[in-house]
Simulated scan of single mutants.
Amino acid sequence: MLDIRSISKTFNPGTVNAKKALSGLSLHLDPGDFVTIIGSNGAGKSTLFNAVAGVFYVDEGSILLDGTNLTFLPEYQRSRMIGRLFQDPLKGTAPGMTIEENLALAYLRSTKGSAPFARISRKDKALFRERLSLLHMGLEDRMKQPVGLLSGGQRQALTLLMATLVPPKLLLLDEHTAALDPATAEKVLELTKDIVAKKNITCLMITHNMKQALELGNRTLMMADGNIVLDVGGEERRSMSVEHLLARFKEGAGHALDNDRILLS
């Protein structure tokens, strides 16, 4: 499904500020995999997402999604196959446009691509209203309101709906609940689990919560120094504690995890 083969990326090469962000990283995901990723700042988590999404091209290696070689495809073409949510609820939506207009943009991009004169029908609007009602936030009655009037949790839930309105081949969740208050974060996370499960979406999710990383999905990765140092799933993962996870990280990385945000979560 997703095949990442020995990708590397160095920023500012040949300068004193050179930084090797990814180093020969390989990863395979089967259809329907829900993989959580954990690691310290600078481990390469978001850089991996940016490489897959096409924010930049990798220096070496290749990225294939469902048989399509994405390695040198521009970001806008990948966005028709890949959905993404960011930590910042302000990203992913156009605040000056209405809820309906934001959904229309996401829907047309996924279904019509760059086709000229593409329009939203009355049937499409009914679909938007139906899907909004499933969020249980009353947004189906506010479709003509600007997105900028919504709370952070409402915007993140809307972004999730936009990213999955037409199920993507791959969904990237970059700590998408980290900026929300605990109650709202839990609600958005429950929505995420429900949508991903019902639509059988292949998913990669970055989290700073180790307990959450072991409970969600079917696999957990730990990253350090631009590579994957632990990939655990199946029965081993089901019986694994946070303490065991930390011990396994130390074995794979050669040093203990030293990120206070993760350790205190």
Rank of each mutant, 00 (worst) to 15 (best):
D194S: 15
T47W: 01
D174V: 06
L105M: 13
L108G: 04
D124C: 01
L246R: 11
L27H: 02
V16L: 13
C203H: 06
K125Q: 14
L230K: 13
L173S: 13
K199F: 13
E235M: 08
K250T: 01
T68K: 12
S46H: 11
Q212D: 03
M210G: 07
S114L: 15
L134S: 10
K20T: 12
N227K: 14
L132S: 08
R237E: 03
K198T: 09
L132N: 05
N218K: 13
V52I: 15
G83H: 04
R122W: 04
V232L: 10
A253D: 00
V35M: 11
R109K: 14
D124M: 05
A178R: 08
L90E: 15
T207I: 04
G92Q: 00
S239M: 12
G14Q: 07
I38A: 15
R219A: 13
G226V: 00
M137L: 15
C203A: 12
K91W: 05
K123E: 15
N102W: 01
L139Y: 01
E175P: 09
D124G: 02
L180A: 08
Q77H: 11
S62C: 07
D260G: 00
F56Q: 13
L230W: 05
G217I: 08
N227W: 03
L246F: 02
L108A: 09
K125E: 14
H208S: 02
I195Q: 09
L64I: 06
M81F: 13
E75R: 14
L25C: 08
G152V: 00
R237F: 04
E175F: 13
P167Q: 13
P74M: 05
M81G: 06
E236R: 15
K9M: 10
P146R: 11
L263S: 14
S114C: 06
D258H: 09
D225W: 00
T10R: 12
Q212K: 13
D88T: 12
Y76F: 15
V166W: 08
G96H: 15
E60I: 03
R5E: 11
L191G: 10
M1E: 11
D59Q: 10
K45Y: 00
I38M: 12
N12E: 08
I201A: 00
E175L: 10
E190H: 09
I120L: 08
V196L: 06
I201L: 00
T220S: 05
R122D: 12
L22V: 03
I262R: 09
I201H: 01
L191Y: 10
K211F: 03
H136Q: 14
Q87E: 02
F117A: 08
T184D: 07
T71S: 10
E100H: 15
D181P: 06
A178M: 02
R129V: 14
K123T: 13
T111E: 10
S110H: 14
K187S: 12
G254L: 14
T98Y: 12
A94L: 14
L204C: 09
M97E: 10
L73F: 05
L90V: 06
Q154Y: 07
N218I: 03
